[in-house]
Design a protein around this nucleic acid. Structure first.
Length: 643
RNA sequence: GCUGACGUAGCUCAGUCGGUAGAGCACAUCCUUGGUAAGGAUGAGGUCACCGGUUCAAUCCCGGUCGUCAGCUCCA
């Protein structure tokens, strides 16, 4: 029998009989691997694990623990779901059904409106299909034959997809499983029986190709796993995320509100939310001053002329609010702070000796956002950017970018976010600024990241029209990613405002301009922060740090002394004088997620002590007030985030 | 903005197949002065999102508007 040499990722190579499948190779390695292998990569091409191998090759095997394994698993799951839908609704037509970060979806066109109950029916049908354990069979058709096939199916969406495929495509792949055939590049799991535990999560509206002018479809989301525990864990994760929802916690903890009558997407900070925000902003300002920034304040409105010069009226108008007329002149509320900062720049003749200038402002901007996209604190119409603009020379840009990256890391770590991901967005098609500028700026972004030893991904063509950028995404306690920081070059505004500095050579030069926001916006940041900590803020940020609870009115005097001592130390303290039992008060402060409760009664007054109860930890026993204060103060000073 | 669902007391939610509404928590008063997650009694609270229509009668049915939620698209 002829042999083939198969090289595995660890570099080891072995000879097998020609025609062996990846699954059989897996078996030869270990039974467990064979059981868990979902998909194979043969010489860089993804293939089913029952594909015969006829040539020497490099082989990689993927299980559910690999991204590629997961993707296949979910992709096949979406096919299975579509099959179940087709069985229940024979007239159904199908759009696209990919795997996504967490699970899969399929866009479906049926007349009937699907409800939660329908999802249960579909799930039941899926279970039946899984039990049949039908193999996923690949079939290749010519473009013409594929068109005929889907024409028979009356599925205009698939026809459109095929139509969009390259004219030279010789073979269009279809997958069939138990009588259900779908257009699909593949590859798939060997059979439906591989899909073990799944749940359909939701159904919502979508559009064919994401275009609201095209056909409306219904999108069913689902998730599937090879192990029961994985599914249970995932469903628990969803529950946990719901519990942490900042909109819910914002109400529960009395942090902020939004008033539909007064205007959606506009945030009202209550005393406690404002307190947290104030701590964040204080810290932010101090750190900026330490890092060589100066702070600015600028107005909220400016004449149309300014926004014309800046280009906002031609590029950003749909996000700006209608102008107001003042002395027969149109004024616009600012959607960005940059033009104002530039005006300040231009109040003086700048020398290269003045650069870099780093100017920061917690600038509140207003942008029109479509009503359907508003979301608690995360997507609003009025928000405060932790904005800064850096004006510098060509020679300075790389160091400046490095500093911003370091500063950003420092800020995120200070707030307890450890995991950051970097994305460099490069030149889109339509741009301002010449190629050389783009090239230089993009390289400086990459070099800065490399200099810091940070890995990054490239978002090809994802830059703004005015310059390339670095976006930083952070991961929260539930491992969810949020896009927050951004560092953007701007070749447009210095040009439009004719910004200059006098160089060493005595001639005028154009400064480089970098916009950057570290936290993004204070509103969004606080939304993420609330969810990250599930409302239990670390002591340094907590709106109320300590609640003092006397056992009864008899100890009010002693409790008042404690309260006064804490206030003297600038500790945010509440004196609970309510006519309630301490069990009731403890429950109340516990649900308000206050870090410490100090309980004082007869024992404490006699011993001149306090009893400390820590949020989520319970009774810590008696202690001297001075000891407690010094520990608390050190935790605040160090911005200790582990509580 | 688009699709769908929803909008009842400060909060969380019942309810009325058309006859102007109810619970728990919170709040107020009183009793109780209590030792680590809810002591008791009494009471006050609602133009049932808003505007129209149908009807003897609308919180309920119909239309519109606003808003919220799940998505789509977009973004800090």
């Amino acid at each position: 029998m002829e042999k083939v040499k198969i090289t595995l990722p660890d570099g080891s190579a072995k000879e097998y009989d020609k025609g062996i499948t990846p699954l059989e190779v897996a078996k030869s390695i270990s039974g467990r691997l064979a059981k868990e292998t979902l998909i194979a990569e043969i010489d860089g091409i993804m293939k089913e694990i029952n594909t015969p191998i006829n040539n020497d090759c490099e082989l990689k095997l993927y299980t559910f623990n690999d991204e590629k394994g997961k993707e296949t698993y979910w992709h096949s799951s979406s096919h299975l779901m579509a099959h179940a839908v087709k069985e229940l609704y024979p007239e159904a037509k199908f759009g696209v059904g990919p795997a996504i970060d967490n699970g899969f979806y399929y866009d479906i066109d049926i007349n009937e409106k699907l409800s939660e109950e329908d999802l249960v029916r579909i799930e039941k049908k899926m279970k039946e299909l899984i039990e049949k354990n039908e193999p996923f069979k690949r079939k290749e058709l010519s473009k013409a034959d594929a068109l005929v096939f889907f024409n028979e199916q009356k599925d205009e969406y698939k026809l459109e997809l095929i139509d969009g495929l390259d004219e030279n495509t010789t073979a269009i792949s279809l997958y069939n499983e138990g009588g259900f055939t779908d257009l699909c590049l593949g590859p798939h799991l060997p059979s439906t029986g591989y899909i073990k535990y799944f749940k359909l999560l939701s159904v919502s509206g979508s559009y064919w190709r994401g275009d609201e002018n095209k056909a409306r479809m219904q999108r069913i989301y689902g998730i599937s796993f090879p192990k029961q525990k994985m599914l249970t864990d995932y469903l628990e994760f969803i529950e946990e995320a719901k519990k942490r929802d900042h909109r819910k916690l914002g109400k529960q903890l009395d942090l902020f509100s939004i008033h539909e009558d007064a205007g959606p997407g506009l945030i009202y900070w209550h005393p406690k939310g404002a307190r947290v925000r104030n701590e964040i902003e204080d810290f932010w300002k101090k750190e900026h001053l330490k890092n060589g920034y100066d702070l600015l304040y600028s107005p909220h409105i400016g004449k149309a002329q300014l926004w014309e010069t800046s280009g906002h009226l031609s590029h950003f108008k749909e996000n700006m609010y209608s102008p107001m007329e003042i002395d027969e002149q149109d004024y616009y509320v600012k959607p960005m702070n940059c033009p104002f900062h530039i005006l300040i720049y231009k109040t003086d003749l700048r020398s290269y000796r003045d650069l870099p200038l780093r100017w920061a402002e917690l600038g509140t901007v207003y942008r029109y956002e479509k009503s359907g996209v508003l979301h608690g604190l995360l997507r609003v119409r009025g928000f405060t950017q932790d904005d800064a603009h850096i004006f510098c020379t060509k020679e300075q840009i790389e160091d400046e970018i490095i500093e911003v990256i370091r500063f950003s890391n420092y800020m995120w770590k200070s707030f307890g976010f450890e995991s950051l991901k970097y994305y460099v967005s490069t030149r889109p098609e339509k741009v301002t600024g010449n190629d050389e500028l783009w090239e230089q700026a993009t390289n400086s972004l990459k070099k800065a990241l490399e200099h810091e030893g940070l890995e990054y991904e490239i978002d090809e063509g994802g830059g703004a029209f005015y310059g390339p950028k670095i976006d930083i995404k952070i991961k929260d306690a539930l491992n969810r990613e949020w896009q927050m920081s951004t560092i953007q070059f701007d070749f447009n505004l210095p040009e439009r405002f004719d910004m200059t500095y006098i160089g060493e050579d005595g001639k005028e030069h154009r400064p480089f301009m970098v916009h950057r926001a570290l936290l993004g916006s204070i509103e969004r940041f606080m939304g993420v922060l609330i969810e990250h900590y599930a409302g239990s803020f670390p002591v340094w940020l907590a709106p109320v740090q300590v609640a003092v609870i006397p056992v009864s009115q008899n100890y009010f005097d002693y409790a008042q002394k404690i309260v006064s001592s804490l206030l003297d130390e600038n500790i945010r303290v509440k004196f609970d004088k309510r006519n309630e039992k301490i069990g009731y008060k403890i429950r109340d402060w516990e649900t308000q997620k206050v870090p410490y409760m100090l309980i004082v009664g007869d024992k404490e007054e006699t011993n001149n002590t306090i009893s400390i109860r820590k949020h989520k930890h319970g009774d810590l026993g008696e202690s001297k007030l001075d000891d407690f204060i010094s520990e608390l103060k050190s935790s605040i000073k160090n911005r200790n985030n582990n509580n």
